[in-house]
């Protein structure tokens, strides 16, 4: 990119120097903008985490200060750990989220491959049908879903949640992935067909080529699944299948005026998601850049 200083356009070194100077300014401005926005994005989270370690009076009197020897008070965390089975809740959330993600990616890529690859009667209609689900509030179907779950004997199991989240994640997944599937070069697939590969084999081959879509869909679906409150409350409220978000909610209700406990449980709820996100985000970024083959 440094070669943009083409001699035919930039004739003297003075101009070149001025150009570099303005480039420097641009860089500084860009960094400033990014830094400011990053600060804006992180400041609220910082406030919560920092204050969760302080005593109640310090939270109100000095909200921005880091905890000091006098204001240090992990009482919020003690309350949280004494009152809820967060380890189990965390494992439940992890099983549900990963289970649903695997199913969404598998069923979603298969369907969007078929929609993007084959021309068959009703293709467009089916695509639209598969998108209908994101156009109504899913809570509308609560009772119907619960009845189905009961009929299948899945009430109060993690399977109920996995299946519901898979169903609710599929429309967006198929919508995004179909767009990406269409961009896979036809020559590659036709070449494979000439070599006698089965359609299933060709589908499997295309998956690495749509990795950005896989990463994007995984991240977008992971968030609402992990954070959902409604379906755990309705479909799996028992102690042994409770998810971490539902657990934290019971908590927030219980100690809504105990800011230590509130801030501590908020912090505890934030950390796993952020860790999970950072793990996935490597995949996401790698997927994004790998997809942008030049």
């Amino acid at each position: 990119m440094a070669t943009t200083l083409n001699p035919t356009h930039v004739s003297t070194t003075r101009v070149a120097r001025r150009f570099q100077l303005s480039r420097l300014w641009q860089l500084a401005a860009a960094h400033l903008a990014l830094l400011l926005y990053t600060a804006l994005a992180l400041f609220p989270i910082f406030l919560v985490v920092v204050n969760s370690f302080k005593n109640r009076r310090a939270i109100f009197a000095m909200p921005y200060a880091l905890p000091t020897a006098e204001t240090w008070d992990p009482v919020g965390y003690q309350t949280v750990f004494n009152n809820a089975n967060f380890g189990l809740y965390f494992a439940n959330s992890l099983i549900v989220t990963i289970g649903a993600l695997v199913l969404i990616l598998l069923a979603g890529t298969m369907a969007s491959y078929a929609l993007a690859e084959y021309r068959f009667p009703g293709n467009t209609l089916l695509g639209l049908y598969l998108a209908l689900g994101i156009m109504v509030p899913i809570r509308l179907g609560t009772v119907g879903i619960l009845r189905l779950v009961v009929a299948l004997g899945l009430a109060d199991t993690l399977w109920a949640l996995i299946l519901v989240y898979t169903a609710s994640g599929l429309p967006l997944a198929i919508f995004i992935m179909t767009q990406f599937m269409r961009q896979v070069p036809r020559e590659l697939k036709d070449a494979a067909r000439v070599d006698g590969a089965s359609e299933y084999r060709i589908y499997w081959m295309t998956l690495p080529l749509v990795r950005p879509a896989l990463g994007t869909v995984a991240v977008f679906n992971m968030i609402p699944i992990w954070n959902d409150l409604w379906f755990p409350l309705i479909l799996a409220p028992s102690e042994n299948v409770k998810t971490v978000t539902l657990g934290a909610q019971v908590f927030l209700g219980q100690f809504v005026n105990d800011w230590n406990a509130v801030l501590a449980s908020l912090t505890l709820a934030i950390i796993p998601v952020v860790v999970l996100y950072i793990l996935f985000s490597r995949q996401l970024i790698r997927g994004l850049t790998a997809g942008a083959v030049k």
Binding site: T142, V143, L146, R147, V149, V150, A155, D156, I234
Partner: peptide, 8 residues
């Protein structure tokens, strides 16, 4: 209400 209707 949802749980009563769904029988759970």
């Amino acid at each position: 209400n949802a749980k009563l209707e769904g029988g759970t």
